[in-house]
Design a protein around this nucleic acid. Sequence first.
RNA 1: GGCCCGUUCGUCUAGGGGUUAGGACGCCAGAUUUUCAUUCUGGUAGCACGGGUUCGAUUCCCGUACGGGCUACCA
Length: 492
Amino acid sequence: MSVRVRFAPSPTGPLHIGGVRTALYNYLFAKKHQGTFILRIEDTDQGRFVPGAEEYICESLAWLGIEPTEGPTYGGKFGPYKQSDRKEIYHQYAFELIEKGKAYYAFDTPEELDLARKSSENDSFKYGVHSRMSMKNSLTLSEGESKTFIDSGDYVIRMLIPTDQDIKINDEIRGEVSFNSNELDDKVILKPDGMPTYHLANIIDDHLMEITHVIRGEEWLSSTAHHVLLYQFFDWNAPSFAHLPLILKPTGKGKLSKRDGAEFGFPVFPLTWARDGEESFPGFREAGMLPNALLNFLALLGWSPGDDKEIMSIDEMVELFSLEKIVKSGARFDIEKANWFNQQYILAMDESLIVEAITNQAIANGYDLTKLPYCVTMMKARVNNLDQILKDAYYLFEKPHQYDNDTFEKKYKPENKSHFNQIANILPEIGDKEAYETCIKSYISDSGCKMGDIFPVLRIALTGILQGPDLFDTFSILGGSEAKERILKLIN
RNA sequence: GGCCCGUUCGUCUAGGGGUUAGGACGCCAGAUUUUCAUUCUGGUAGCACGGGUUCGAUUCCCGUACGGGCUACCA
């Protein structure tokens, strides 16, 4: 049987970075086994539906290069791939469970359930084996009473959890995990609006779509017992389960979430999410992160190939990937390491592609595009994300905004003023790095002044700061008259 | 609170009954560079604790502690 895995996000907003990793692992696993990677949209909660979220998910996967081959916009013969389009299917199976005596109607109002919870100790109320007979449902009410509720459509369907049963799950990552059914609640599987809950929809779809491996976050581990039971109710074979460790906040206190980006100062979404009248979130793409660097970093957050290999292409990851190598414990998100990966990818990237990538930014700033290739050559080893190049090297395109006065005062000796004037005057109008280097160095040796007195000041004159690319490269890209102007401006 | 899962340098991890416990990020130092960055070299730092099992446990078992997840008519 060929491997079929699915990534099943719900369109409630932008796709979180943890979701991206789940998608990645599913993708790697599918490719590794020449299987199929499927996208399924889990939009059973109409109240949480966010327009544009589905498009965002697809765009993110496309940007990262881990696209599904089956899904809403990708086609496939197991559709529809959006759960809201499968409502009737779930109905049919929910009623089948009622007929089989594996589920029942419940009529308790949300207020009544709330009350039951609040009046229990520590909110320990559970709608299950010990409490269902004192609640309002088709098990406790007369047939007539039940029928009245059912006819009015005011009901939910709950799964009937068996008593005293051990449910064992053989997780691909964690090994055997077991639950006792007495601790499980009678989960709602069909809501009053006619939509299924995640639990029902999920197992029906996985079965119908012939999913062989369910690879998802650890937050699902607890409810897997319910899912296994549901498979048993239907007499279906359950797929294999693999529950991934969670990606934690940098502090380790809790899983990384939506607003942690603002809290810790880095994106937690692949693409920027900005909608009118909505809270917006920055994305890695817009922050200058390369998709393969992000993937590489994410892959290693919870998995390792078993040796010391760290920089890997997607193909290499596919080759090396295995569920057994996935780590069991949660991993903190470390932006420093993500930046390092990005830097490595920038260093290895073809320079013409970098130029291409930052051209729009240069146009927006009104910069001279002919300088871009040279600028990239000079700057690429000095940044760890793409949009930092033009931010850091703005002085190659416009006059310095400000000067490092402390250093200037420390390095500039008024008695050298004439030397700077001289240098400014002998600069060739155009020339390569060597031309400027020869010109200035020979002046220095002829005049007997010290490099240490001259270079730092020239650097500040040209760029405003002390650190940056090679001084003579900077002269070359700026040209003689611009350099002269900047030198004269500073020393006068 | 209950149930479930986890715990190797600050972080991501390799390893696994006998190892100088390995790598990477970060940090520190040195080399290179007119500066910064890159690159290179070196350094810092770890098996949560307590009991077993064993000739020997970081590794296996049991507890404890700590951390995380779930505990909805959300996914």
